[in-house]
């Protein structure tokens, strides 16, 4: 019995190790391919490591002004997007979690309904709407259409419902208004849920591709995924540079994740299913 258990355990560990390696392998390969000469990325016979480690791919993509601009613009947009998403959605979450007012039910249904409308169903008409509003080729067209999110609002509300009422009752008796209670009690306590929603929003913005390709034609505003895809089709022989660029484009998100992973992985537990 003991021996069998030991074997099962060993098999499990090997399996786990293999899966972890398989999960990281494509990314590690990408990072390393960034150090290869352009005709060495796809070479027969297969070689994992470069014959000679070149830094030129990374340095030349880093000195490409379009790449840097695109990273900068996307970063700015993503930070703005995440911040607005937290403010707008948490205010609504607070209102629905705590306040009583006329038409609460109607407004709740109105907001929640938007969760069931898939992006593709409104992709084209949204495009027409933003065109009519003269928003094409601005940062606003990337930020505003997706920033209000019933899903994020719902997630934050679930968190607020669990904050004990006692905390705010004292403040209410002291005559603090609702707005004050929101900013001084709820906002500071929202850290764990804000990390999850904020990073989710940031990632959604950083990784978005289809909407930017439809609405942004000015190269100065190119989003990073748009840049990479354009690079891929226009300079298809520069494989090493493409890998270097992809690596650099993935790094900010990976760093962000590593910093906050404790909260993110914990957040999976509070995402509302048992």
């Amino acid at each position: 019995m003991k021996v069998k258990e030991q074997t099962v355990k060993t098999i499990m560990y090997v399996f786990g190790f293999l899966i972890a390696v398989a999960a990281l392998f494509p990314l590690v390969w990408m990072v390393i391919a960034g150090f290869k000469a352009k005709n060495e990325v796809l070479v027969t016979p297969f070689r994992f490591f470069p014959e000679k480690w070149l830094f030129s791919n990374y340095s030349s993509i880093l000195s490409d002004p379009m790449f840097l601009k695109s990273m900068g613009v996307t970063f700015m947009g993503a930070v703005l997007f995440a911040a607005l998403s937290l403010i707008i959605n948490s205010m609504a979450a607070y209102v629905f979690a705590r306040l009583e007012f006329r038409f609460k039910r109607t407004l709740w249904v109105f907001v929640i309904c938007t969760m069931f409308i898939p992006g593709m169903a409104i992709l084209l008409t949204s495009f027409i709407v933003v065109t009519e509003m003269k928003m094409l080729d601005t940062l606003a067209v990337l930020v505003f259409p997706g920033v209000a999110s019933a899903g994020h609002m719902f997630f934050i509300r679930q968190f607020y419902l669990n904050i004990p009422m006692a905390l705010e009752e004292a403040a209410l008796i002291d005559g603090a208004n609702r707005w004050k209670i929101f900013t001084s009690i709820f906002f500071p306590m929202s850290y764990p849920v804000f990390v999850i929603v904020g990073i989710g929003s940031y990632l959604g913005f950083w990784n978005s591709f289809v909407w930017p390709t439809m609405t942004i034609t000015n190269p100065d505003l190119f989003q990073i995924m748009q840049f990479l895809n354009t690079f891929r089709s226009e300079r298809s022989t520069e494989m090493g540079m493409l890998m270097a660029g992809s690596t650099l484009a993935a790094i900010p998100t990976i760093i962000l994740f590593l910093i906050f992973q404790k909260y993110i992985i914990k957040g999976i537990k509070i995402s509302g299913l048992k």
Partner: peptide
């Protein structure tokens, strides 16, 4: 470590995944 390792692909964009694959 393993949780972190398997979570990382989740945050990678579809475009980068396409390029790699």
């Amino acid at each position: 470590f393993v949780k972190t390792a398997i979570y990382i692909p989740t945050i990678i964009s579809g475009i980068i995944a396409s390029i790699i694959f």
